[in-house]
């Protein structure tokens, strides 16, 4: 795929059967929501020794590995460093990892799985982060109690790893020269921009699409971006994709005369809403905007957050595939507050 903002065209190759020629589509407006390249291919040793849970392939690999090959040894869970662009620093903070919801959501149910499958428990799991504090974007008031609880359950915690240098048969080696012994290595990579977005006049120095806080590119007013492809989407989190999608809809409605400037020209006020599975039909719900300078900060744990997480999926998989918006998200906020 390629994108030409000057010529207002997109080129793509139909991929259902190999052999199609390049097709060209002209656009009046383009919305770049292509997600990110997950840089597992940048982690030495991942193919041989690593596991993850970011898609169904890796998920099924782990599902088969646990009962068949896992010998009950130590487990390492954590993230590689995220290389964020530098051109949106006036809009969003800089993150050390792309999103640490996934490692949190792996470590907790994995500890429960170990307990319930005769493999020990959380004391076998070491969680690591490249930054000062794991999931720092959720705010210290949320993260510290969560880490305290995890520590009391027996989880081990390592910070300041800087980056994953390599995965070996024996564990995970970090850029700061330290390592963690692990039989099972669960890692989440750098979130990178797709190669076709690099060096475009709409992109930042890492290839993510530059936008203002209304999802519009500052140089090409007919270019929008949301989700992981947008430079301001930090961390790379679903709720921010929700907010970006709504901003795009409003801005295009403004341009075609279907919505007033008063309703549309409002900057996104980012907030982290995240519901994680903890195992045992329990979940944790975080709601915080302190990383962005706000004052919201809430952490709830128990069966209700788990129920909400399961219901969130049903919103998508229902007969109308309704993207969960106002009602559901308000309910989540009510729950959290």
């Amino acid at each position: 795929m390629s994108l030409d903002p000057e010529g207002q065209t997109v080129e793509f190759v139909p991929n259902e059967r190999p052999g199609s020629p390049v097709e060209t589509l002209y656009y009046d407006y383009v919305v770049v929501a292509v997600g990110a390249h997950l840089g597992y291919d940048q982690i030495e040793g991942f193919a041989e020794y690593g596991h993850s849970l970011s898609d169904t392939y890796y998920g099924e690999n782990l599902r088969r590995y646990l009962p068949e090959d896992y010998q009950g040894g130590p487990v390492g869970v954590g993230s590689a460093r995220f290389h964020q662009g530098t051109m949106s620093r006036n809009l969003v903070p800089t993150a050390e990892s792309a999103c640490e919801g996934p490692p949190v959501e792996v470590m907790l149910p994995l500890g429960y799985w170990l307990e319930t499958h005769g493999g020990g428990g959380p004391e076998k799991v070491t969680v690591f982060t490249p930054g000062e504090t794991m999931a720092e974007d959720a705010g210290l008031a949320v993260v510290k109690p969560l880490l305290d609880i995890a520590g009391s359950l027996g989880y081990h915690y390592v910070n300041h790893t800087e980056d994953i240098k390599a995965i070996t048969q024996d564990g995970v080696e970090f850029a700061n020269g330290t390592s963690v012994e692990a039989e099972l290595k669960m890692v989440f990579p750098d979130w990178q921009a797709h190669s076709f977005l690099h060096d475009l006049p709409i992109s930042d120095d890492r290839g993510f699409i530059l936008t203002n806080m209304m999802a519009r590119n500052p140089r090409y007013s007919n270019v929008f971006a949301c989700g992981d492809a947008a430079a301001v989407t930090v961390p790379k989190l679903g709720i921010l994709a929700h907010m970006g999608a709504e901003a795009v809809g409003r801005q295009i409605a403004l341009d075609v005369g279907r919505m007033s400037p008063e309703k549309t020209n409002v900057n996104m006020a980012f907030v982290l809403n995240c519901i994680g599975d903890m195992g045992g039909n329990k979940g944790c719900a975080m709601n915080s905007d302190t990383w962005y300078g706000g004052k919201k900060s809430s952490l709830k744990m128990g069966h209700i957050p788990f129920l909400m997480k399961m219901q969130y999926r049903k919103c998508f998989f229902g007969p109308r595939a309704k993207y969960p918006t106002g009602g559901f998200l308000r309910l989540v906020c009510l729950l959290k507050n």
């Binding site: 849970l53 970011s54 898609d55 169904t56 998920g59 099924e60 782990l62 599902r63 646990l66 996934p102 959501e105 792996v106 149910p109 994995l110 429960y112 799985w113 679903g238 599975d277 195992g279 997480k309 399961m310 969130y312 999926r313």
Partner: peptide
């Protein structure tokens, strides 16, 4: 993506 870990475990 969000529910893949749950399904696997």
């Amino acid at each position: 993506v969000p529910n893949i870990p749950y399904e696997v475990f």
